[in-house]
Nucleic acid binder design. Structure first.
Lengths: 197, 197
DNA sequence: AACCTTGTTGCGCGCTTGTCCAACACCCGA
DNA sequence: TCGGGTGTTGGACAAGCGCGCAACAAGGTT
């Protein structure tokens, strides 16, 4: 086994648990059990459990981001790209992935390392969307005076609504949220109602 | 000491700790130590720690809600009421109150009592805004086909943007967020640009 | 063959958590 | 004066945590 591969396996196992139980509830023994190894092994590759969890969150968000970036890169039609963005945004996947974001946002103000990671990834998501918008504007498909600001607003509305879906499961229906977001994005980009499905 | 007063003192102590360390990191012993009493006392007034944290969060958020409700009730002009709502929404006050919301959303999935409280208060805020919108519609000032849905969207955008301000302090400026929200509310209510200041 | 590095094990120490409980203090009505 | 709620204490408890450590396995170097 190549060096670093074992490390990756630990992160992957930690992530699997975290998606299932939440970041805070993921323990050294959980990870070891998931891998079928001993708990001491984890400490051989990581100085502390905090480091493992930070790496797991980083990877979860990075993976989602990479997958979404790829999905967007495939098409050429700006409208399709926008749809791909919404289909891949974190809450569209597992609820626990979004729960990871909730955990990160709550801890961001108190733990600098977590805050830096979540800020970096949040900005990366915003830039992905902003880039898509800019392409659409350049192609004459979107009418959007300030794509950067629009991207922040769309992502924030998405986060705010997703938050209700994940934290309070009965308050808002997932389909309703999806519909509202698409409508809002149409307004912000000057698309005709229903363009985003 | 009047009955219930001791209970309030526990809630106040728990709130003080929660603001300092976070809702999730607040322990029975922390609260007892803050009060200068024993840990057993907390369980004499509360069935579980979950209940204590829920009560602490409840108090912080309820205070904000009551203050905002009062501020809105003072005026008669729907536009002024809407402005009052934005001026009093939690992030407009102290960052630490909004930080408690972040904590509560993250903990909602793990602590049933906290989840129920945050859901209830979220809905209360939404209804306060929805009520204001409905009044405006009845008065012919707002043009808003579905005030309930609009209220959810405005609050979610507000939460999503506030989240960035509080969790990642350098990413978005508070004034920018305030401006975006007002613009969005104008769009949703058919008000002329700049009506909300 | 002897040795050292590296990977891995599994146990257990020390600590913290929420919860429970027996005991004590106090005060008010009988 | 007595009795019994009520408030309060402080510690015991089991469970769970991260972490360190002595020991063993295996392979490469000398």
């Amino acid at each position: 086994m190549a060096p670093g591969e074992r490390r990756d396996a630990i992160v992957a196992a930690a992530l699997a648990i975290a998606r299932r139980k939440g970041l805070a509830a993921t323990t050294v023994r959980d990870v070891a059990s998931e891998m079928g190894t001993s708990s001491g092994l984890i400490h051989h590759y990581f100085d502390s459990m905090d480091d493992v969890l930070a790496a797991a969150f980083d990877r979860a968000a990075s993976d989602d981001l990479a997958r979404t970036t790829e999905a967007i890169a495939e098409g050429t039609d700006p409208v399709r790209k926008l749809v791909a963005f919404f289909d891949n945004y974190s809450v569209a996947g597992s609820d626990w992935t979004f729960q990871l974001w909730l955990d990160a946002w709550a801890e961001a103000g108190r733990r600098p390392a977590v805050g830096a990671t979540s800020e970096r990834l949040n900005i990366a998501w915003q830039q992905l969307l902003a880039g898509t918008l800019k392409e659409g504007v350049a192609a004459g498909v979107f009418d959007c005076p300030d794509p950067d600001a629009t991207a922040w607003r769309i992502i924030s509305l998405l986060d705010g609504l997703s938050l209700q879906v994940v934290a309070h499961q009965a308050t808002l229906a997932r389909e309703t949220v999806s519909w509202w977001i698409r409508s809002y994005a149409e307004t912000e980009t000057g698309l005709a109602a229903g363009s985003l499905g």
